[in-house]
Amino acid sequence: MEKIVIGNHIRRLRFDHNEMTQQELADKVGVTRQTIVAIEKGKYSPSLELAFRIALTFGLPLEAVFFVEESNG
């Protein structure tokens, strides 16, 4: 099965939403700041529930926040 790498636009979206800090986003979606840092750096792929929470926080559909960066066979 192909392994996919999930990218995201969280850093840009935070900036577009009144320069929201990582801590503010973390508080809104109920995780630690370190988890937001890890997601932004692509070190952690969030659960579907958390991904939806982040997307809802920005008022966007899931695919506007997360995308498939690359896939390896």
């Binding site: 109920g30 995780v31 630690t32 700041r33 370190q34 988890t35 890890a38 969030p46 958390l50």
Partner: peptide
């Protein structure tokens, strides 16, 4: 210390 233990932890 982070106040919560989230899904990643």
């Amino acid at each position: 210390e982070p106040p919560i233990t989230d899904e990643r932890d």
